[in-house]
Design a protein around this nucleic acid. Structure first.
Length: 533
RNA sequence: GCGAGCGUAGCUCAGUGGUAGAGCUCCACCUUGCCAAGGUGGCUGUCGUGAGUUCGAAUCUCAUCGCUCGCUCCA
């Protein structure tokens, strides 16, 4: 059963990726750098193939809408560094990042804006002076609760210093005096850290002068570049609501903890489409894109049972979002649970409203037929291209048992943890769909020490090369060459043998079944075209 | 950032104070009439990095960097 493949460990996968040139750790010769990855010769090929599939499905040949007409989606490539006001308007500067407070003793972590601080004076022996007591509460009346708790825990003298109307201030909003002990709610001791900003955005400076005026950010998402160009696109490309703008590009987040190979990295690539529609139709389009996106993932050959939707609860919605559903995949490191792959968000008119206000530019859409003006609502399917690469790698990886001479049948899925049975040997095969495979065809002479075979094989290689990514190999035994191609997921191998010299035929060997068919060389391109889709 | 574990060849790993190893991979030649691991030969390591202890450190100590897992966050 295909779906059992998710038992592949990330360790195994990482090692294969390095060995065969899919993914390397960035700056490896200098000891690496956490959260950054390089895509090797095969990795970039795979990534480009996924990228091209998305672009085709979104921009070049978008799906048919509910009325049967093709949707209107145009492409964009906006800059990575934008006017920094962009990120103030979008909410990324300011409220977006949550400062956190750690208790060094208990390892508890609190959101600083949920910590309420009560100041008091202490005159206990050995701890003369001012103290800050922190209470953690999330309810609406947290302030009052914090004050009450402080009253209960303090000594008489300390209570007195609180006064009749003590103030409780959120940890983030307070100008914290130096040297005042911060009492942890858990330990009653000075074990809390300062609130620490987990700023998601990378900062840089534009121009020669490095100061606050010149500070800019590497974009944490590609979406804002689309909103900034919304008016340009409407004015120049004759699109009418509903329509979409799609973009693929790098984004940067200074993640607290990059994890799980390329799953969460600090530099990654996004594929985002902003769908602009009338507010009254937004829910319909939200549902439409939800279904469409799932279909697209399945079209990449991902097992449906490894995919699922997960609706966001109201309390986990981002500040800009009215509704959000994730497409989730059963990653090896989450299995049997699932992890995020794509988010489809109903952003309402939040972004256009924000940018309209901040830029004082009119961003309303004028409906030609009715004369109505309105800010469109936005449905945003946003997925990670580099995360898609990981999913495709996980999904493609298989270990199989292959019958040796004299044993009937084809390859079968290996039982995890079991030794290879008598009469079989094991192989690793990457079962990419042909359209995603980094190399489509490999060409071999059966033997390399027969010049006639080599010459003919080279001819075939030259013939196929302009059409598909083709790999020529003559090193070692033929079986070894097949296995090498299995491990990088090449769907077909073409071999020139002694019959080829007589009748101008070659064999095509299928990666998945390992079966061979013999075809005339002059039909080779046609047959491969059929099989490669 | 905090806590725990780990870092030896391209990969997987052995080596607990005394001259750095194995298997696989890779390269060359031979062999090979279709599914890796037949023959011969060969390359690869400042044992993550730096400092310390020691006559002597892959091994002990400290620091640092990186990786993995948990807290946290997200495409």
């Amino acid at each position: 059963m295909n779906s059992t493949n998710n038992t592949v460990s990330l360790e195994t996968l990482t090692s294969l990726c390095k060995r065969r040139g899919f993914v390397f750790q960035s700056s490896e010769i200098y000891g690496g750098i956490n959260g950054f990855w390089d895509y090797g010769p095969l990795g970039i090929q795979l990534k480009n193939n996924i990228r091209d599939e998305w672009w085709k499905a979104m921009v070049e040949c978008p799906p048919l809408g509910p009325d049967g007409d093709p949707l209107q989606i145009v492409g964009l490539d906006s800059s990575i560094i934008q006017n920094p006001q962009t990120w103030v308007a979008s909410g990324h500067v300011g409220g977006f990042s949550d400062p956190m407070v750690d208790c060094k003793a208990t390892k508890n972590r609190y959101r600083a804006d949920q910590c309420w601080v009560v100041a008091f004076e202490s005159s206990e022996a050995g701890e003369e002076g001012h103290h800050l007591r922190l209470e953690v509460a999330v309810e609406a009346d947290a302030k009052e609760v914090a004050i009450e708790t402080a009253r209960e825990k303090l000594s008489k003298k300390e209570k007195k210093s609180l006064g009749d109307n003590p103030a409780a201030v959120a940890y983030t909003q307070m100008d914290l005096p130096d040297g005042w002990p911060r009492l942890s709610p858990a330990t009653q001791e000075n074990t809390l850290t300062e609130p620490r900003e987990f700023n998601l955005m990378f900062e840089t400076y534009v121009g020669a002068i490095k100061n606050d005026e010149s500070k800019a950010y590497l974009r944490p998402e590609t979406a804002q570049g689309i909103f900034l160009n919304y008016k340009n696109v409407v004015d120049t490309s004759r699109v009418k609501v509903p329509f979409g703008i799609a973009q693929i590009g790098k984004a940067f987040r200074n993640e607290v903890t990059p994890r799980n190979f390329i799953f969460r990295s600090r530099e990654f690539e996004q594929m985002e489409m902003e769908w602009f529609c009338h507010p009254d139709e937004s829910q319909k389009w939200f549902n439409f894109w939800k279904e469409e996106r799932m279909k697209w993932w399945e079209s990449l050959g991902i097992e449906p049972e490894n995919l699922r939707f997960r609706d966001h609860d109201a309390d986990e919605l981002a500040h800009y979002s009215n509704a959000c559903v994730d497409v989730e995949y059963r990653y090896p490191f989450t299995a049997p649970d699932f992890g995020e792959l794509e988010g489809i968000a109903h952003r309402g008119c939040f972004d256009l409203t924000q940018h309209q206000e901040a830029s004082r530019q009119k961003l309303e859409y004028l409906e030609a037929e009715t004369g109505n003006r309105y800010l469109p609502n936005v449905i945003e399917p946003a997925s990670g291209l580099t995360r898609a690469v990981l999913v495709i790698l996980c999904e493609a990886y298989r270990e199989e048992w292959v019958p040796k001479d004299g044993v009937e049948g084809g390859p079968i899925a290996a039982e995890p943890g079991q030794p290879t049975p008598e009469g079989y040997e094991s192989r690793v095969v990457m079962k990419f769909l042909p359209k995603l495979a980094p190399v489509k065809v490999a060409v071999f002479p059966l033997l390399k020490n027969r010049p006639e075979l080599v010459v003919k094989a080279r001819e075939i290689y030259y013939m196929l090369r302009p059409k598909w990514t083709t790999f020529y190999d003559q090193a070692g035994a033929i079986g070894r060459r097949y296995r090498r191609q299995d491990e990088v997921g090449t769907p077909y191998c073409v071999t020139v043998d002694f019959d080829s010299l007589q009748d101008d035929t070659v064999t095509i060997r299928d990666r998945d079944t390992m079966e061979q068919v013999r075809v005339p060389i002059n039909e080779l391109e046609t047959v491969l075209a059929e099989r490669l889709g």
